[in-house]
């Protein structure tokens, strides 16, 4: 007998409802709006355009990602930590965590997009996190890859992502913020679902090698289910 989860889901393997809307922004080359439970992310892709000189690469295109977080999507105000009060991080909406999140999403997109198809050009991806209740990285990856596809950027495959949290002995898929806080281990996986190629994986906490492998497998199954939903939305549009 499995304990139902705090948000009413019956099983640890259940994902939250994912809804994907495309072309939500009339000015962008491609755009999307993704809701994963209470987590809401909007993404707009602009370009291709001529890159700045210092970003110019010869054989491949550039994908630049910026993640913004609306102030009310934050749970608490950020405290300025010791030694972290430098210029770039003074702006409360651009914490180091968000800059890192941008870099992570950029890594995923660069692995999936065929950047050699638009050499000497740049595509800008703007991700806006509008509400956050766990899984904001998952929602951001799904939104960005859908928007990139809508913008007509050639990709090896769509990127899909999923998270998992270990609470005691339970492995809970697609956790809410509250479940994340109770957990003592967390796995994030971004993959290309048609090939099951791991694009980015992060495991935190203490695991045996077997447990860690099993958690990744469960995440991969979650990725596949999200991937199907995004694919359906793209096919319909």
């Amino acid at each position: 007998m499995q304990t139902p989860r705090s948000d009413g889901r019956a099983s640890d393997e259940h994902l939250r409802a994912l809804s994907v809307a495309l072309d939500t922004n009339s000015r962008a080359s491609g755009s999307s709006y993704v809701e994963l439970g209470n987590t809401k992310v909007s993404c707009a892709v602009y370009g291709p355009r001529r890159p700045r000189v210092d970003d110019l690469t010869v054989n491949t295109g550039v994908i630049d990602v910026d993640v913004f977080r609306v102030p009310f999507a934050r749970k608490r105000a950020i405290h300025v930590e010791r030694g972290r009060e430098n210029e770039r991080e003074k702006d409360l909406n651009r914490s180091a965590a968000d800059v890192e999140l941008s870099a992570r999403i950029a890594d995923v997109l660069r692995a999936c997009a065929l950047t050699e198809t638009f050499p000497r050009a740049q595509v800008d991806v703007y991700v806006t996190i509008m509400d956050s209740d766990g899984g904001e990285v998952v929602a951001s990856v799904l939104a960005a890859s859908a928007a990139l596809a809508r913008a007509g950027v050639e990709m090896a495959d769509l990127a899909s992502a999923c998270e998992l949290v270990r609470i005691g002995e339970r492995l809970v898929l697609d956790p809410t913020e509250e479940e994340c806080e109770r957990g003592n281990g967390k796995v994030f996986l971004a993959q290309m679902s048609s090939e099951e190629g791991m694009v980015q994986g992060e495991t935190f906490g203490r695991w045996t090698a077997d447990e860690s492998r099993r958690a990744l497998e469960q995440c991969a199954a979650g990725c596949n289910r999200f991937d199907t939903i995004v694919r359906e939305a793209l096919a319909k549009s």
Partner: peptide, 21 residues
């Protein structure tokens, strides 16, 4: 004790789970 206490992967198309293991 040989426990995994963090695992960070970057890959792409060619990294399947068997290789990762």
């Amino acid at each position: 004790d040989g426990m995994v206490c963090g695992e960070f992967t970057t890959g792409g198309e060619t990294l399947d789970r068997g290789t990762a293991d």
